[in-house]
Computed example of a mutant assay.
Amino acid sequence: MKVTIAYIDEPPFGWTEDRTAIGADIDLAEVVLRAIGVTWIEHHPTTFSELLPGVETGRWDMNVPLFVTPDRANLVAFSVPVWAIGDGFLVRAGNPKALDSYASLAKRDDARLGIIAGQVQHDSARASGVRENQIAIFEHQAEAIDAVRSGAIDAYASTALGNRIMADRIKGSIFEAVEHKPETNGKRQEVPFGAFSFGKRNNDLRNAVNSQLRSYLGSPDHRARMAKFGLTRNEIDPVLAR
Rank of each mutant, 00 (worst) to 15 (best):
E179S: 15
F193M: 14
A84D: 04
A77K: 03
F196E: 00
R164H: 14
I174W: 11
A147D: 05
Q141T: 12
D154M: 06
Q119A: 08
N163P: 01
L105T: 00
T159Y: 00
Y156M: 10
A127P: 05
L105G: 02
A152I: 12
I135M: 10
I170W: 09
G86W: 03
V120G: 00
S150F: 09
A111D: 05
A111Q: 04
S128C: 14
P192F: 02
I116W: 06
D168T: 10
A103R: 11
I135L: 08
K187D: 15
I137K: 01
I115D: 04
K181E: 14
I174E: 15
L105N: 00
A157S: 15
S124K: 13
L75P: 00
I165A: 00
H140M: 11
E139W: 09
P96I: 08
G86A: 13
E183A: 15
D168W: 10
A77C: 10
A195G: 02
S79G: 06
R112N: 11
R169K: 13
R131P: 06
I135G: 03
E132F: 08
G114W: 02
V191P: 06
D154Y: 01
K97Q: 14
H122Q: 13
A155H: 02
A155N: 05
E176D: 12
A84C: 09
H140A: 13
Y156E: 08
I116G: 00
I170C: 07
D154F: 03
G114M: 01
H180G: 02
